[in-house]
Computed example of a mutant assay.
Amino acid sequence: MPRDFDATSPEGRMLSIEEVADILNVCRRFVVTLADAGKLGVVERPEAGQRRIPAAAVETYRSEQQAKARHALDELGAISQRAGLYGSDVKKV
């Protein structure tokens, strides 16, 4: 289960790959892929080598993904409704 994310945290806050993975409820490797693809804003990589990702960029990505998921569910509901899969006239198998 994803960890609660405080969207009110300071805008300049930087998160580790592990923290982002916990927030998004994905594996660390997927976060690295997102970071390398530029989907998490400007990722800092200090000389120590560990990537640091802006908390604001993580919140933006998470919000966009949630909106896409809601839209897809709405579309699926509309398709199901047009197919007659909603309502009291649905036959139970």
Rank of each mutant, 00 (worst) to 15 (best):
V20W: 08
A55K: 02
G84L: 00
P2D: 01
A83D: 15
D22P: 08
R13V: 06
A72M: 09
G49Y: 00
R45T: 12
T8Q: 03
H71F: 15
E44D: 10
P10L: 13
K92H: 12
A21F: 15
R62I: 04
S9L: 06
A69T: 15
E11S: 13
E64F: 02
P2T: 05
Y86F: 11
G84P: 11
R82D: 08
E47S: 07
E64L: 00
A78N: 05
E47Q: 07
E19Y: 05
A7C: 07
A78C: 08
E59F: 11
K68G: 11
Y61G: 02
D36G: 03
E59W: 05
E64Q: 05
R62T: 09
Q81M: 07
S63R: 12
M1W: 01
R52L: 10
K39L: 13
P54H: 01
Q81W: 02
G49F: 00
A56W: 04
P54E: 01
A48W: 05
H71A: 14
L85G: 05
D6W: 02
V93Y: 08
E59C: 09
H71Y: 10
T33E: 14
D89M: 04
F30V: 12
D4G: 08
V31I: 06
S88L: 12
A48T: 06
Q65W: 03
K39E: 15
T60N: 07
R29K: 15
P2C: 03
E47G: 07
T33F: 03
F30N: 10
D74H: 06
D36F: 04
V32K: 13
I53T: 03
A78D: 15
D74L: 09
N25K: 13
S80P: 10
S88M: 02
I17K: 10
R28A: 03
A72L: 07
Y86M: 08
Q66C: 03
R13W: 05
A55T: 00
V42C: 12
T60S: 05
R45I: 04
A35I: 00
V43C: 06
T8H: 01
L85Y: 11
Q81F: 05
P2M: 03
E44V: 03
A21R: 11
G87W: 10
V58Y: 00
T33V: 11
V20A: 10
E18L: 12
G38M: 06
I79D: 14
R52H: 00
R62P: 08
V31W: 08
I23Q: 08
R29Y: 04
T60F: 10
S16R: 07
R13H: 04
K92M: 09
L34D: 02
F5Q: 00
V26H: 15
I53F: 12
A37V: 00
R52E: 03
P2W: 00
Q66R: 06
R70I: 15
A78K: 08
S88Y: 09
Q65S: 08
P2G: 02
E11T: 08
E64K: 02
E18P: 05
T60G: 04
A7W: 13
E18T: 09
K68P: 14
E47R: 11
V93G: 07
A72Q: 10
S9K: 09
V32W: 09
F5P: 00
P46V: 11
D74R: 09
I17V: 12
V93W: 07
Y86C: 12
A48V: 12
R28G: 01
A48E: 12
Q81I: 06
E19I: 00
G38I: 00
